[in-house]
Nucleic acid binder design. Structure first.
Lengths: 208, 208
DNA sequence: CCGAGATGTGACACCGTGTCACAATTCGCG
DNA sequence: CGCGAATTGTGACACGGTGTCACATCTCGG
């Protein structure tokens, strides 16, 4: 998170800085973002920058906070609309994010973000450090219809979720790296979700 | 791949350089590998290094070529031993890699490699650029028993493979980031493979 | 109007990369 | 052997990036 000092900045100046940051994040993938260029574009001295932000990661988190909030709301809504069907929700998340990306201003910015697989894992799995499900997931849990899932053991749900998330992370990376083939990536992702649902193993005759 | 010049180097010198490289790759994760430190440790001038390698990625590919070869052999063997059962094979690949990592010399080196999710995707999916399955997979294809898999559409197999690979990439990253909890990560990975096999969706009464 | 605390500033130390003109060596051949 | 060409070695250089710190400036309550 940015410093308090950052939020105390006169609107004018803060806006200019933010625009510089957006510009830089839109220009190159995360790994190549240069604080040097940002401060030059914003016309602020080097020292000031570090009074506002702690580094790249810090900026990223701030820049994506709106999206994360919207994603959460959207997910909640989607869960309710789809009767707690996780699979439909995940596909809608991709669509939602696509719509979000293709909005004027976000065009290259979120493409650069979403096409970075490492960021995606962070983005979705969110401070999942204690081994338990992330905070986000925790809040959504009550709305998920577990009866749709074939859960047998204690950890089945968590494991399913991890699979879906890792798949989703890759799907995002692929879809947004070359957004012109979005339809294709989406179709593939949808197909993969179906595969997850029905299982990979061919049932032998006589099995359930 | 390194230059011809590199292979023409006197054994003494080449060995010293390789040791410096291994040392550096063992010391820090890939992203922090410094060519500066390598040349200092190897006692060669900067210019020479660039006469041998093209950069970090180049070194990585060379350093992992043995592993990749062994992996391929191992996979082939495992496929035959397990009657073409992909799932058993993948679990064995994790075990094989664990054994490989815990060999004396490879200890931190391969840990640093395997715990990098981006490298893993490259490592497994290997020049998968044309959208088709990677070369490696192509050669293994004949040994996979498709009758064990519930393949219905044209693209089902490719999609299954992608799911397994993305899951495997994450499993590697997790397992080797904190190798002390390997047993745990392995168990989880195994459980997830089982989930893939049986499917996530609860069969409604009356369904197949 | 003064002084303390908040904020602004940019030079500095440090580390990294890839290149290039030039030096040294090796090798084939007359 | 001797010489020229090809290969290899060398390190200074230009460039770019990061985070910090001593010092300047501003702001605002008392």
């Amino acid at each position: 998170m940015p410093t308090r000092t950052f939020f105390n900045l006169p609107d004018e100046k803060r806006k200019k800085l933010l625009e510089a940051i957006y510009g830089e994040f839109s220009r190159v993938p995360f790994g190549e973002v240069s604080i040097n260029r940002i401060i030059k574009a914003a016309g602020i001295p080097r020292g000031s920058f570090y009074q506002y932000f702690n580094g790249k990661q810090d900026m990223l988190q701030y820049l994506t906070s709106d999206y994360r909030q919207m994603l959460k709301n959207k997910t909640l809504l989607s869960l309710k609309q789809n009767g707690g069907d996780l699979f439909k929700v995940f596909l809608e998340i991709l669509d939602f994010s696509y719509a979000f990306v293709t909005e004027e201003k976000n065009n290259t910015f979120f493409r650069n973000i979403f096409s970075d697989i490492r960021i995606n894992t962070d983005l979705f799995q969110q401070q999942n450090c204690d081994g338990s499900l992330g905070q986000l997931t925790g809040e959504l849990l009550p709305y998920i219809d577990m009866d749709l899932l074939d859960i047998r053991g204690e950890e089945d749900f968590g494991n399913m979720l991890e699979i879906i998330l890792s798949l989703t992370g890759e799907a995002f990376a692929k879809a947004f790296l070359d957004i012109s083939s979005y339809e294709n990536s989406r179709r593939q992702y949808a197909a993969q979700l179906e595969l997850l649902k029905r299982g990979f193993r061919k049932a032998k005759r006589g099995e359930a």
